[in-house]
Simulated assay, not measured.
Amino acid sequence: MKARTRIPLTNSWSHAMQVMSHEIRSIKDPGKRLEILEAGCGPRWHLDIGDDGHVLTGVDLDPEALRIRRDETKDLHEAIVGDLRTTDFGHRTFDVVFSSFVLEHIPGAQQVLENFNRWLKPGGLIIIMIPDPYSAYGFTARMTPHWVHLLYYRLIRGQKNAGKPGFGPYPVIYDKAVSREGIRAFCEENGLVLTAEYGMLSDPLKSNFKQQLVKAYTRTLQVLSLGRLSSEYNDVIFIIRKPALPSRADLQVSAALPI
C-alpha cells in the first residue's frame, strides 16, 4: 500500500453539507427547476439548495427506507424501489446525481457509476460520499464482520434502530471502483472533471469517552500503518462535473476557424 496523498478536509458535518449545497446552487439557473436524483436514500435530505425550485427523486432497494422518507420525512417528490445497477432513467435526465454512503455496499459498483454518467445532463454534477477504504475507519470496516458494525452503530454512535428495516449499517463490499483511485480513474475514462475531493469526519467532534476511544484507536492504526491509514478523516466527498455541450454559437465559431 502506497502512502496516501493529503486532501483538503472539511471541519465538520455541517461544513461538508454547506460545501456540497454551494456546488449544487452554482449550477442552478434562475427560473429553471433542478432535477435531482438521490441514489440510495438516507434518513433525510441534508443539503440546502435554497427555494423549492427542484424535484428530488429517491431510489433505493430498501422499501422501508423509502417509506420513511416518503411518509415521515416527506422530502422526496418521487420514491422508487429499485436497484441502481439495473434501474433505467434513460439519458441526460438529471442535473444532479447525489450518492451518500451507498457505493461501498454494492457489488458491481462500476456499473452504477456508468449509470450515473448516463443519467446526468451535460453541465451537471455527480456528488459522491464514501468511507475511504484506506482511512483507518474504512480499513476497519473492510476487515471486520457486519455484526461489529452493528455494535459500533448502536453502542458508540447511539443509533438504537441500527440494523432494523429502513436503517443502516448495511454490509460493505468495497468494489475496486469505490476508492479515491477508482473514482479518479472513472472520471478520466469518461471525460468527467473531478473538481474537488474532500476528507470528512463521519460524526461531529465529541468529547465523550466512547468517541475518545475511537479516536485513540484510529490514531494508533495510523501509526502502526506508518501513516498509510489516515486517522485525520473517515470519509471522502467527490464533486464531479460533466462538461457542458458546446453552444450553437460556439459550434459556428469553430466551423469558421481555418483548419
Rank of each mutant, 00 (worst) to 15 (best):
I259T: 13
R248I: 08
F186R: 02
F89K: 03
R6H: 15
A255S: 03
R228S: 12
T195K: 10
E188F: 01
T87W: 07
L205G: 00
G31M: 07
R157F: 05
A16G: 10
L34Y: 07
V193D: 13
K2C: 03
R6M: 14
P145S: 13
Y174C: 05
Y137A: 05
Y134V: 08
R228G: 06
H91Q: 03
G138L: 05
E38L: 10
I156L: 11
L66Y: 07
G199L: 08
P258Q: 09
I106F: 04
T57P: 08
M17S: 08
L251W: 06
A65E: 07
I7N: 06
S207L: 14
W147V: 14
I80L: 14
I240F: 05
L66I: 07
Y174E: 02
P246L: 02
L155F: 15
G227L: 10
L103W: 04
N117R: 11
F238W: 01
T218F: 15
F89Y: 10
Y152H: 04
L221W: 01
V55N: 13
Q211M: 13
N11E: 08
P145K: 13
R180Y: 00
I183V: 14
D52F: 05
Y217N: 12
L47H: 11
M200R: 14
A162P: 00
E78W: 08
A196M: 04
